[in-house]
């Protein structure tokens, strides 16, 4: 009976918390408070004007994001779309591996929500445009040698090698002379390194080549790679380094 009432009160608590949670991570922040957070933690790189030209920017490659165009690389939304608040929260919470963009897990969800609201004031695009719906990522099938092998075939058929190279070392024929939207040189990722920049799980890798990275040469393959092929391709990429976490089938699913 006591058990029941605890469960019941947990339900009530959940229901009470629901209005705030309905917004989801990163949503509903206050830009006024966000400005304070920004000035404390972000300004030195992303700049007072949000143009990516803070005082450290000179010493950094890849350059800090210029927020004025409303262009963001890591999204669950289709090519060209704005990211969702949850996408921004994930990027800011986890950081961007191998770059100067650190993880901001430590500032907490509230501060992240506010700073996201503030970042949006730098681009008029947030007033006139909305993020498109997130892509649907089907459940991950088990990692297996057969899947890796099929994934290699998808890599070849999709010509990823044009930029990433035959052996995925980031050295394809088009790897040189690439530029991002801000005119800075950019190189295709060396996929054998074992960590991609923004998340290592299967679905993190999946969304990169299905939605593409806005502002960069990395295109969206959503129209040419089916969901089954996409998971095989994820497994192929994960097979390239022992450092990628792998899904060894149902047994490994904790």
């Amino acid at each position: 009976m006591k058990r029941l009432s605890i469960v019941a009160s947990a339900f009530v608590a959940l229901a009470l918390a629901a209005p705030a949670r309905a917004q989801g991570p990163g949503s509903g922040g206050d830009p006024v408070k966000g400005k304070v957070v920004y000035e404390r933690y972000c300004l030195s790189c992303h700049g007072e004007l949000g143009n990516g030209a803070g005082e450290f920017a000179e010493w950094i490659t890849t350059k800090p994001r210029d927020y004025r165009q409303g262009t963001f690389k890591w999204r669950s939304t289709p090519s060209g779309s704005l990211p969702t608040d949850a996408d921004l929260d994930k990027t800011i919470r986890d950081g961007i591996y191998g770059t100067f963009m650190p993880t901001w897990y430590a500032i907490g969800e509230h501060n992240r929500r506010d700073v996201i609201a503030y970042i949006k004031t730098f681009s008029a695009r947030w007033k006139t445009d909305k993020p498109q719906p997130s892509i649907v990522i089907p459940a991950e099938p088990p990692y297996s040698d057969a899947s890796v092998k099929r994934g290699r075939a998808v890599y070849e058929k999709s010509n990823c090698a044009q930029c990433h190279g035959q052996d995925a070392l980031g050295d394809g024929p088009s790897a040189h002379e690439l530029k991002d939207d801000w005119g800075n040189p950019i190189v295709p990722y060396d996929l054998t390194q074992g960590h991609i920049k923004c998340g290592d799980t299967g679905s993190d890798i999946y969304r990169v080549f299905i939605t593409g990275l806005n502002g960069t040469p990395m295109p969206s393959f959503t129209d040419s790679i089916s969901p089954e092929e996409a998971w095989d391709l994820v497994h192929y990429i994960q097979s390239l380094s022992a450092l990628y976490p792998k899904n060894y089938g149902p047994a490994a699913a904790k």
Binding site: Q69, G70, T71, P78, S79, G80, K157, S158, N159, D181, W182, G183, G212, N214, G215, T216, P217, M218, P219, S220, F221, D223, S224
Partner: peptide
């Protein structure tokens, strides 16, 4: 502005 509108891969002939 140089802002990306979208970026679509055309990986093979006839696509």
């Amino acid at each position: 502005t140089n802002a990306t509108i979208y970026n679509i891969a055309l990986p093979f002939k006839g696509f």
